[in-house]
Each structure stands twice: as C-alpha cells, then as structure tokens.
Write a protein that binds this DNA or RNA. Structure first.
Ligand SMILES: Nc1ncnc2c1ncn2[C@@H]1O[C@H](COP(=O)(O)OP(=O)(O)OP(=O)(O)O)[C@@H](O)[C@H]1O
Length: 775
DNA sequence: ACCGCCCTAATTTTT
DNA sequence: TTAGGGCGGT
C-alpha cells in the first residue's frame, strides 16, 4: 500500500481506522494533516470509496487546495471530485444548491464583516441608539455570538436584562430581517443557515449524510458549536468521522470556537476511537523542548508527550531591542546574515507578530534594504476603498436588492446624489419594497420623492446599472468589471478625488481587474456570482505564496498549520503577547500562551525572539516589559544575543539574564529593583554600551536624547516615574500617576489631590521633584 | 451638495 | 498615527 510509506505505526493506525468515529489528538508537527490527507487517498484507493463520498473540512481554502492537490497526486482519478473545503465554503456550496428551501436565491449575496457593520450602523441610527454606548463593532460581535449559540432575536430579547441588552436584541432582530429581505447572508449565516437547512429539512440532511460515507475535519480544536452540529448532521448516516486536532493550538475562542468539541468528542460521538501521535517531525529537539516547556505552564490541558528523533539544533536566539524600529533593524540584519551564512533562502523565513499594526516597522526595514517580502493580512487588498467600491457595484449588479452596497455606490463617483436624496430614496424604497431597479426606472416616483433634478440623476444611474446587469447575464466577471470601470468613469473619479494617491489606487483597480481575469480563466464557473463568492470567502492564509522567494510576514493566528525553517517571533512583550486585553483573565492568558506555542512550533530549524522596551502606540511612545512567556522558556534552549536594556523608567526586569555578561561581570542582581532608583546610572551605562548600531543611534537622536552618557543622568525629564511626589508652580503638590512617552514628548498624568488630575507635558511643567514613593 | 477642517476614538486575533 | 464623523462655510 504505497500511500502508507513512511508513516509511523500510530499514524498508520489512524489512517487505517476502519469504520466509526475517530479522533486524532496530537501536538504540533506530528503529522495530523498528513494523516488526514493520506486517509482520504487510502479510502479512495484501497477501500473503494468514491471521491464524491468524501467530505473534508480544512481551516483555509489554501489548505483545502493543498489537500486536494495531494490527494490528486496520490490518486489521480480523484481529481477535484471530493468535497474538500472550509466550513464556510462548504456551507455556501450547500446553500447555493438548496437555499431555495430557506427562501434564498441561488445567487444570494455574501456580506463580509464590513457590509455587516454598515448595515448595523444604519440600524443603530434608525433605532436612535447612542453610538457611544452601542458601537457597531460591539453589536456586530454580540450578534455573531447570538448566531453561534443559535439564539433567535426573540430569545435574545427575552433574555435581555438591561436597557442595553434590549437595544442590542432589537438591533439583532432588525439586522436579521434586513439581511433576509436583501437576500444576503453574513459569514455566520453561512454556517447557521446550513445548520438550519439540515435540521429543518430531513430529506436534504439524509441525502447528503447518505452521500458522505466519510467526513473528515482538520484543526478540530477551533470549530464552533454550530460547526459541530453541521458535522454531526452530515455524518449521521454512516458515522464515519475522522477529526484531528490539538487542544494546545486552540486560538480562536474569541470567535466562538470551543475546544470542548474536541475534549468531549467521545460524548458527542459514542464509541469513538482516540488515537494519539507523539512523534514530531517538524522541529529540532531544542525548539520542541522550548515549546513543550512553555505550554506546560497551562493548567487547563491534557498533557502530551512530544518527542523528536532529530538531533541537536541551534538555541532560540533572544534579541532585546530599544523600540520597534530597532527591533526591525535587528530582524532585518539577522535575516541578512541567515541568507549569507546558511543555505536558507528568503522563502524559508517567516516573521510573526501578534497584531497587524506591528508589521509597519518591519516592513519599512525590509523595504529600505530591498529584501523582498510579502505581507499576509492586515489591510487586505479587498478592503481598500476603491476595491470595495467596485465590488459593491458588482454586488448590486448581481443582486439589486442589496441596499447596503447600493448605498455605498449611489454617489461614488459623485453624481449629485447626496445625503438628502439618498435618504429620501431609501425611505421610499423600503416603503415600496421590491427591487431598487424598479424604483430607479420609475421617473415619476423618483421626481415625486427626490425632486426633479435629483430624480433625473437617479434615473440615469439606474440606466447604467441596468446596462451592466444585462451585460452580466452572459459575460464573465472580468468583462463586467472592465465595462463597469469604463461606464462609471471610475479612473477619472480617482484622479479628481485625490491626484496624489490616484496612481496607487488606479493600480489597485488594475489589480482587481487582473484578479477577475485570472479567476475567469481558471475557474470552471467564470460568472460574476462565482467571482464575488470567491472574493468573499478568501481567507488571509489563501494569499500566502510559497512559490516566490520572499520573506513572509503575518500574524501568529494566520500562521497556524504552516511551517518554516526560520521563524522570527517579534514583540515578545507583556501587553502584546500576551495581549493587554487578555492579561486580566487566566483563561485568556492561557489562550495567549497557546498562541506563543503555535508560533514556536512553526519552526523547523530555529526560532528568533525579539522584545522591545518601548513601542509607539497611537503615535506616542510607551514603555514595555518583556513577555512573561520568555521567562517560561528553558534556560539552556535560549541564547541572549543582546543585553536587556532596562526601561528608561526603571521598568521591571522580568527575566534575569541567562548568561554571564562578559562586559559587566556577574551583573548586580536587580531583579526587583525599581521605582527607588528610576534611572540608575549603571543600568544606563549597560544599555549605552550596547546601543551601538546606527539605527539605534538614529532613533535615539530623533527622539531628542541619545544614550550618550552625558545627558543620561542629568536630564531631569528622564527621571520621572509613577508614584513620585512633585511640585508644580501653579498647581501645587501632586503624585505622578502615569508616564507616557519619552524626551520632549514625555507626558505625565499628575494627581493634585482635590484639584484633580492633569496631563502635563514634562518639558514645560517645570516640576520640582520632592521625593519618590517608597516601594 | 460638497468640501475642508477639527476632533475623537481606536488596534487584538479572522472565516 | 489615522480614519471617520460632525460642523460650518461656500
Ligand atoms: N511519518 C512522517 N515521516 C516524515 N515526515 C513526516 C511524517 N509525518 C509528518 N511529517 C512531516 O511533518 C511535518 C508536519 O506535518 P503536519 O503539518 O501534517 O503536522 P500537523 O500535526 O498537522 O501540524 P500542526 O498541528 O502544527 O499543524 C510536515 O512537514 C510533514 O511532511
């Protein structure tokens, strides 16, 4: 059985599992995905299962494509016939076919989160919600939670205990009705409506459950309750479910995923066989030990026993830096050295971070030195304004009932249809019901509701839409898009709108046209609807190119399931990783730790960790402390490459240096030394000795004070710290509550007793230091 | 209806 | 730092 070659006995057992539910629970890099793929090949090749009798769920479309390709390679005649896709893509596929049973058109519109948000915004305005209390964002996430726990608007309304919750429930109700009336589904609907379809229509459920003799799920730890229902329903007849996952890699609980799906597997699927894989094939033992050690700090977990028979491996390198620019320079220099000194090429290197905002500095550093890179995620291509405008047009062309998209394009490019006209038009439209195209074609009605001149302009706009709609009936997506750009003179609009950015935005338009072309030539359904669907379902991970030789940048979340020889984990600071919003809760910190674990276990050869002592946030500098997770790494796995600069404000040193520091002998123990000596000279000297690189110097110079020793201990503005008693000429005596920024930009929040709190620019405040608070 | 100015709030993570 | 909303002038 050729497909089994090279598998270890446990993997083999998992692949060859005969019938009934099976759970493969195993740590990172143990070959779970490989088992899943091989099992599909084996089922088809050896068990006589037809490719279309197989349903497999992956986390991204790219993973699906890869799985499809690999199965294809192992079993050529199976090409493209199995159902392999994400939960969302599979939901869409079922809903396109059977959605009419729920009252949806075959080409229902898929709302992305942005569309949902605009709809919610409109609804909140309509119900006079205070935008300060009810942000569209919060309501959107509440609605998502409702949907994922299959709570209807009525139920939500009944359960509401506060005025606030009532409003949210009200908005939820309107949102659901509006969506339905527009013939649109949001992301959650793609799952929830599928579940509804299967639950309410036995015949459909039975038909598909009978068809799918085998159901397989990758990354099972990150599925949500609705997805579990979907899996159950679709595997109900044959009960052949193979799920693989790793509870230590559950990192999406914030969007409703629950690891309980996996931990209670045997309860949900009685008689399930559980198989564990313990040999890691990906990483060096050093990386593995580091990862194991860190994750062992989580209390809520079923332990694992991961091992590797690879030998040796370089230690994890830990680089302390001054700020994010400095950090980026270190990363860039280290990459240069990797490329020069090892046989690594750029595509073997990934730079990971917790938040997309962190990519900026890294990107700048790489660009300056012309190291080619790709950024995955962040402000995605399909989120650019010009791209979204055009997509909105396409959505309206396909589905004129989509009022959210219609509202977006009504006056883009500007055609004299401003706020007033827009409001009148939509009020009338909602009053009448029916298609927007009907109203746009009714000149008398338009004139009556919006006035003569605006009415004419609306009618003209309607004509354009109708023309394009007719075109779309028998042309492909690319043709429609090209005609659209011409018809609305979109490029002229870009030029007029802002000549400075016009070029770049025109490029984005060209890129979109290009993407449509590519789609139409590659897809077996080149229609507009199919194109819009592919865009809506596109995941960040899908955009990872692994054929071109470039360094890759992405968030840790996006990196799940991938592997790279060299992994840089940047921003290892408390507040970032673990993220500030998770620090309060133990469970949340554990999820952050899993995130760190995921990051570490992406590495095949070596990990590089960076941690900055200051970081720009919202424009002003804030000091950072090292990530608590760094302290959880086994000492002998880590090599510190730079000295840990102490925060200018005497920030705590969470981790002790791991190596004797030749320059400074043993180094005085200063574990808990802080506050009493805000800026100790020897610490500054330590730092100064290390701050040699040009980038560092430059950054320091720009922020108004270099680390050159002469202004270190005299400059008064550097020695403010929280808890200090100070005197102000006018305001009197106060206590410093907060220190933000450095140098000229340093701002202090000082509490002056009865007189309240003041935020002062340290440079101008002329404060006299009375004394420091005792620790 | 449109434009430009100022203010503010916000960045976790994504299908 | 930046995007989006509110406001007031044209
Ligand atoms: N039996 C084996 N022999 C050699 N290499 C293997 C074997 N099984 C898996 N591998 C390799 O180990 C690496 C990790 O495999 P895979 O991605 O399937 O693991 P995983 O358990 O899904 O990891 P993760 O949970 O981190 O996503 C891959 O490069 C794969 O080719």
């Amino acid at each position: 059985m050729f497909v089994l070659v090279g598998l270890n006995p446990q993997q083999r057992e998992a692949v060859l599992h005969p019938e009934g539910p099976e759970l493969v629970i195993a740590g990172a890099g143990t070959g779970k995905t490989r088992v899943l793929t091989t099992r599909i090949a084996w089922l088809i090749e050896e068990q006589g299962v037809q490719p279309e009798e197989i349903l497999a769920f992956t986390f991204t479309n790219k993973a699906a494509r890869e799985m499809q390709d690999r199965v294809h390679r192992m079993v050529p005649h199976a090409a493209g016939r199995s159902w392999i896709g994400t939960f969302h893509a599979t939901g869409v596929r079922l809903l396109r076919r059977e959605g009419s049973r729920l009252g949806y058109d075959r080409w229902f519109t898929i709302f992305d989160s942005d569309d949902s948000r605009s709809l919610i915004k409109r609804i909140l305005k309509r119900i006079n919600a205070d935008p300060k209390q009810l942000s569209p964002r919060a309501v959107a996430s509440a609605i998502s939670t409702f949907k994922n726990s299959s709570l209807t608007p009525e139920a939500a309304s009944n359960e509401a205990v506060s005025r606030f919750e009532e409003k949210v429930a009200e908005a939820y109700g309107l949102y659901v009705t509006e969506l339905k009336s527009m013939g649109a589904m949001d992301f959650d609907d793609l799952i929830c409506n599928t579940v509804q379809l299967l639950e309410e229509h036995q015949d459909i459920q039975e038909r598909y459950a009978r068809q799918f003799r085998h159901v397989l799920v990758d990354e099972f730890q990150d599925t949500n309750p609705q997805q579990l229902v979907m899996v159950k329903a679709l595997s109900a007849v044959h009960q052949n479910l193979c799920a693989v996952g790793d509870d230590d890699q559950s990192i999406y609980s914030w969007r409703g995923a629950t690891v309980e799906n996996m931990l209670n597997f045997e309860e949900y699927f009685p008689g399930a066989q559980v198989i564990r894989l313990e040999q890691n094939y990906r990483s060096t033992p050093v990386v593995l030990r580091a990862a194991n050690e860190v994750i062992a700090h989580n209390r809520r977990r079923k332990g694992k026993n991961l091992w590797s028979d690879r030998s040796g491996g370089p230690p994890l390198e830990l680089w302390w830096s001054e700020d994010e620019e400095d950090e980026a320079a270190q990363v860039r220099d280290r990459i240069r050295r990797l490329l020069a000194e090892t046989d690594a090429s750029r595509k073997h290197i990934v730079i990971l971070y917790r938040t997309n905002a962190q990519s900026r500095a890294l990107e700048d550093a790489l660009r300056r030195e012309s190291i080619p890179y790709q950024i995955i995620g962040g402000t995605r291509f399909y989120e650019r304004r010009e791209v979204r405008d055009l997509l909105a047009y396409l959505k309206v062309i396909l589905n004129p009932a989509d009022r959210v998209s219609l509202a977006r394009i009504l006056n883009v490019p500007r055609r004299g249809l401003g706020k007033t006209t827009s409001e009148r038009f939509f009020t009338e439209l909602e009053l009448r019901g029916g298609s927007a195209l009907n109203l746009l074609g009714d000149k008398a009605a338009l004139a009556a509701t919006c006035g003569n001149a605006p009415g004419k302009r609306l009618a003209r706009f309607g004509e354009t839409l109708k023309l394009l709609r007719r075109l779309a009936e028998n042309s492909d997506a690319a043709a429609v898009l090209r005609q659209l750009v011409k018809a609305v003179e979109y490029e002229d609009f870009l030029e007029k709108d802002d000549p400075i950015t016009a070029d770049e935005r025109r490029n984005n338009v060209a890129e979109l046209v290009n993407a449509a072309h590519e789609f139409t030539s590659e897809s077996d359904d080149p229609s507009l609807g199919a194109f819009l669907e592919s865009v809506a379902l596109l995941a960040d991970g899908d955009r990872v190119r692994d054929t071109t030789d470039v360094v890759t940048l992405m968030t840790v979340h996006t990196a799940k399931g991938l592997e790279y020889p060299y992994v840089f984990i940047t921003g290892c600071e408390d507040g970032l990783l673990p993220h500030a919003s998770s620090i309060e809760e133990d469970d949340a910190v554990e999820e952050e730790r899993r995130l760190f674990y995921v990051a570490l276990t992406r590495a095949q050869e070596q990990v590089f960790l960076t941690s900055a002592s200051m970081r720009r946030r919202y424009g002003s500098m804030e000091s950072c402390i090292p990530s608590r997770f760094l302290g959880e790494l086994p000492e002998d796995c880590v090599a510190e490459m730079t000295l840990q600069p102490t925060s200018l404000f005497g920030g705590p040193r969470l981790t002790e240096p791991r190596r004797p520091r030749p320059e400074f002998g043993e180094g005085a123990p200063r574990k808990h030394k802080r506050r009493d000596t805000p800026v100790s000279t020897d610490v500054m000297a330590d730092a100064a000795a290390f701050l040699k690189s040009k980038a560092r110097q430059k950054a320091a110079d720009r922020s108004g004070h270099g680390f050159s020793d002469h202004d270190v201990d005299q400059s008064p503005e550097m020695s403010y710290h929280v808890g200090m008693r100070v005197e102000h000429e006018m305001l009197g005596i106060g206590i410093i509550e907060e220190v933000e920024g450095i140098g000229e930009l340093m701002r202090l929040t000082v509490s002056f007793g009865e007189d309240g709190r003041k935020r002062l620019l340290a440079r101008f405040a002329r404060l006299r230091v009375l004394d420091s608070a005792a620790d």
